[in-house]
Design a binder for these strands. Structure first.
Lengths: 216, 216
DNA sequence: CGTGGTGTTGATTACTTTCAAGATGTGTGG
DNA sequence: CCACACATCTTGAAAGTAATCAACACCACG
């Protein structure tokens, strides 16, 4: 696999890019591009919200925890997408970089009113969340994985080859399944000839129609 | 039970209130209060969105269907709440009155920009949806019912006596469970002394702490 | 060439669904 | 006001799906 677009490779900090978390800084600097290493926290539940986050490259998970450690990832965000709407004054969720991610942070507080631009983005997040409710509430394991693959494929430009930045654990926590069940669903889709697994985090969609038919 | 606040009782159409669906009208009239009988459609998936909906009294379900009839209710809305954000140009979901409901419809198209007022409402819907994802993805049947009761109790003003406007089928379709499982969860909570059932659609929360502890 | 993290597969257990029957409650008509 | 009918809800038993527990495979890294 070439390095061309492999998000697992740590890129050097480029000029004009700040690495975060940085020594001594309590919050990331505003209105510039920050680099978050794989696994690093972008914001935490209960933390004061300062703005919105636009991903230049990399991937992000937004999640919530139960007291016993059960985790629900409410959304993945990929390059080009904007997140951080889980807040009125404070964040209700955690956000972490999955792979190393370069993120532009926009201040929205104490600024000119940005509602007009923000509302459509917020509504897109809302629609996504509501559609995910249908998946979690009414679809079985294999249908959930199918929905996940279709969603990611679509957001990666619709090519049949998908690059998964996240682990099976992340996928499980997004789909409300265990990693074993996710793995079995992948295997079953492979056995049926619907997908091809070219490496653990690379999937090729062979029968797009069959995948779509599982989600109607 | 007194008629005082029983939403199951059909109220007469009051002066200044239009009943809908009405003969000959393709869409409900704008910027006024409409009465929707129990079970009637407020908007449908794919329908052009015309505005937002504020509930004067009654209750509403917003849902989506799979091809085979499986239904996921993404949200219930009670008196005082605003809904209808499941749309960019067209609605992505269905909305129906559960009980007879009186609803004020606000036009948002071709009007002065209302983003500033709308954004906080949309964000509240988003947070609700994302929190519901945790329930559907990571909680078991009894925890889901507990979460549901806490949510409704909170939205009805926090009194220990809850009036449920919706059927067990609706609750099941909201929580991603069958009606039988919902019923069994209610029974188990009753057996544990956490709730009391004063009629099928009336619940009294006896041990609020125990209920809360199931949702941490 | 080990080592640790991640992913896969198998066997068993637990929980929810499905199927079925009975109970409760509401509305209607006598 | 009571009796019946229909819809809704509850409970039980059997079946099915996903979780858990366990072992092994794979891969990147030192």
């Amino acid at each position: 696999m070439l390095a061309q677009s492999n998000p697992h490779i740590m890129l050097p900090i480029l000029p004009g890019m700040t690495q975060f978390p940085a020594r001594g800084a309590a919050t990331p600097p505003m209105d510039q591009v920050c680099f978050f290493p794989a696994g690093s926290e972008i914001y935490a539940q209960g933390e004061k919200a300062v703005g919105l986050y636009q991903i230049e490259f990399g991937a992000v998970r937004v999640y919530r925890l139960l007291a016993d450690g059960r985790r629900q990832i409410s959304a993945f965000h990929l390059a080009g997408e904007t997140f951080g709407f889980d807040a009125s004054a404070r964040h209700h969720f955690f956000a972490e970089a999955i792979t190393g991610a370069s993120i532009r942070i926009f201040a929205t507080t104490g600024r000119i009113d940005m509602s007009r631009e923000l509302l459509p983005l917020a509504l897109r997040s809302l629609t996504r969340a509501q559609e995910h409710l249908l998946v979690l509430g009414r679809q079985n394991a294999i249908e959930r994985v199918a929905a996940f693959l279709l969603d990611i494929a679509d957001r990666q430009g619709g090519a049949e080859r998908i690059d998964l930045p996240m682990s099976r654990t992340d996928i499980g926590d997004y789909l409300g399944l265990t990693i074993e069940t996710v793995s079995r669903a992948f295997s079953k889709l492979r056995e049926k000839g619907i997908i091809r697994l070219c490496g653990v985090r690379c999937v090729e969609i062979v029968k797009l129609g069959a995948l779509r038919k599982m989600n109607e």
